[in-house]
Design a protein around this nucleic acid. Sequence first.
RNA 1: UCCUCAGUAGCUCAACGGUAGAGCAUUCGGCUGUUAACCGAAGGGUUGUAGGUUCGAAUCCUACCUGAGGAGCCA
Length: 461
Amino acid sequence: MILAGQYVRDLLETAPGASVTARGWVKTRRDGKNVHFIQLNDGSSPTDLQVVVEQGLLAPEVIARITTGASLTVEGDLVASMGKGQKVELKARSVVIHGTADPEEYPLQKKKHNLETLRPLGHLRARTNTFGAVFRVRNALARAIHQFFQERGFLYIHAPVISSSDAEGAGSMFQVTTLNLEAGKPADFSQDFFARRAYLTVSGQLEAEILALAFANVYTFGPTFRAENSNTPRHLAEFYMIEPEMAFCDLNDDQDLAEAFLKSLIGQVLADCRPDLEFLSKWYEPELFQNLENVLAGPFERISYTEAVSLLQKSGKNFEFSTEWGCDLQSEHERYLTEELFKKPVIVTNYPRGIKAFYMRLNDDGKTVAAMDVLVPRIGEIVGGSQREERHDALRDRIREHAATGMHEENYWWYLDLRRFGGVEHAGFGMGFERMMMYLTGMKNIRDVIAFPRTPGNAEF
RNA sequence: UCCUCAGUAGCUCAACGGUAGAGCAUUCGGCUGUUAACCGAAGGGUUGUAGGUUCGAAUCCUACCUGAGGAGCCA
């Protein structure tokens, strides 16, 4: 295996003179009269290691098998490069070919491919420069998320992937069953594996609330599932979500944390992955650094829903959808606020109760709830959160209001119990991991920031 | 799910009612401390699928499949 300090990334930073071993996959080979050049990469760096093979070291039929995609181990000496483009190169003493890649059949060429072309090649696209950069950023982002919360004493918790909550309506959830379901036959779910209907989770929030009321500050970071038939560049059926939940916390604290969170993540990834971001900026989003630094530059704009509606009405824009108070903000409204009016992240708070979830805390006006959405240019809503309703009777009443949509008070006995025993004001938010990835990498389609995207009609690999 | 657009060589595209083409890739030859290498030649196609109109369809029409963008839903 490749040990720490022996990745291509490390070798490129090693002083000339060292005797080293490099392992990886061939990007390209170029042949000179007296020498062959092999671009080798192990996925650790956006820059390849140039391997120099002098004429005579390998038989011509061996050289011929070193083509794009082949896997190699090369032993040799790191030497100062005679050519431009790299400080050091590996002068080979021995080359072992582990696996070849028939150039007549290997689909990846040493030219640029469309992202759409690469998508059906999910088993090979990780070897490209673009996906190398994307997945390294993904790793750095995940680490930055844990670091942010760990530094603040948050407990990393694991919400269940299988949930029996039917609050969201079965239409948007994947059902989990071991029964042999047949169309037209009524199923007896009391005989099912969990002795009830079960689903893949659409959110770990309710469980996070339980643990927040024991550990004060907690966060989840795990897979989430939505069975919506959404065919857009921003939606996945399986995605990762981060959900912090804080006791002794109101909506202002919630906003402060969300803003600090986003700034911390961007700052950390800018520091950790600059060469990758430069590559992505060059090929996919020229304004990437400008966008990211703009988030760090100053405080987010914070406005209430009511102010947002007023600003939309005064905008002079001809919106397709209504901007009347009580209507939800549409994509076009969110884009106007964050991209045109404020040109920076905007937090919109205190939405009408009718368009938000039952667990959000009812404000004193009786008309709005303590919700917040963080909107960013290019992506739209990247964070959604709220202060939760901690008053038992108020929460019970809201659940009863939703009875018509299939919510049953008895299913929420434990959720209500949290308000009976040591309840306290608390708040939290959810951030889509892949949405944040899109913002950080400049990728325009969410299917290109996750290794194996699950979308309607697609679960290959 | 709805609306719009697009499917032509391995890849990126041209031809828009009259014999299916180029660049890159591949193979072969040449040149070269090269780095999106360069020069020359060759191979490579049931134009997404199925119907229809026409003397003749990649081109026009219909349906379906696949993909992309927009919308809804949301993270």
